[in-house]
Simulated assay, not measured.
Amino acid sequence: MKFTYESYADMIKHLGNMEYQFADYRSWKDSEKSVILRHDVDYSLQKAAEFSGIEREMGVQSTYFVLLSTNFYNVHSLKSKNYIRQIMDNGGKIGLHFDETQYDIHTEEELEKCLYGEAEILSDITGVETGVVSMHRPSEKFLSENRKFGHIINSYGKLYFNEMKYLSDSRRNWRENVDEIIRQGTYWRLHILIHPFWYFAGYERDMKHTLKGAIFNASLQYYDELGDNFSNLGEEVGRDEIEILLKG
């Protein structure tokens, strides 16, 4: 599978042709053959919103896990809230992407307190109770413990791995041929993790060019945000100067 929007749309089409029903973490048992599509939003809510547009056009829904403790975006900013609203308007569900390394956690009680606190904040932003969590880069210890968090579903619970075929493109690498697995139809339950950050419209970029492009765009975005708060920024430093500097 190529890392393009078109290939993702083709994958959705193939899932439908193989009679998989698109489900979430509560409804996947309602159909004889089902697939959970999930997206960890590690870096860009904008890319996630673009992905949700593809799903809306294809008539399917998925779950987007949003980080609260990240330096890449601010869920409290108006821009981020608009992207989250766009995802929801396109039919996407919002879950919590929780990074336990951002806290000084020593006990299970402390972990739950921090997780529930972030879930409540996310609920305030979305207007919907947060019902599912995905751990950001979970430790082997966490994965082995099969933890439960009350009404909040743990997407890394053994149920979603033992009873489903789990596929992931983490670090821009499909460890198994996802297209072939879908085509064969051997597994009646699929759990597919896709990171929108790696995908582009029209053509595929390798990891190096994806990362360089992200750094370039982030620098220009920072310039634009400075311009919103610094009058006459262009008189001091032109945007074209920054572009030339970044291009080397």
Rank of each mutant, 00 (worst) to 15 (best):
L37V: 04
Y223N: 06
E55L: 01
K148N: 12
I182S: 06
L190Q: 06
Y5W: 15
I54T: 04
I244P: 04
T4K: 10
T210M: 10
G213K: 07
K13M: 12
L159K: 12
V133T: 02
A201G: 11
S134E: 02
L233H: 06
A214P: 00
N162V: 02
L246W: 03
I153S: 04
Q102N: 12
D89A: 13
T210S: 15
E19V: 08
R137D: 13
E57A: 14
K113A: 15
S27R: 06
Y223S: 05
D104Y: 11
L115N: 01
Q221V: 01
R38C: 07
D169S: 01
D40V: 07
N162Q: 12
W198A: 09
E32K: 10
A119H: 05
H106V: 01
F230N: 11
S52T: 07
L226G: 05
E140L: 14
S231P: 11
D24Y: 00
I152R: 00
Y166V: 01
S34K: 00
S52L: 04
E57T: 12
E241A: 10
G127E: 07
T101E: 15
I54M: 08
E112K: 12
K158R: 13
D104N: 15
K13V: 10
S144L: 15
E6P: 02
H136C: 08
I121W: 06
T4I: 02
M11Q: 08
I105G: 05
L122A: 07
V66D: 00
D179Y: 13
D206M: 03
Y116F: 14
G95I: 00
T126H: 08
D228T: 00
E108I: 09
R175C: 12
L122S: 06
S123L: 08
D179R: 05
T63P: 02
G92W: 03
R85E: 15
W188H: 14
H209Q: 13
G127C: 06
K141Y: 10
E55R: 03
S31L: 09
I152A: 00
V75I: 15
N154Y: 03
G16L: 06
N232C: 12
E6Y: 06
D104Q: 14
L111C: 09
H39V: 07
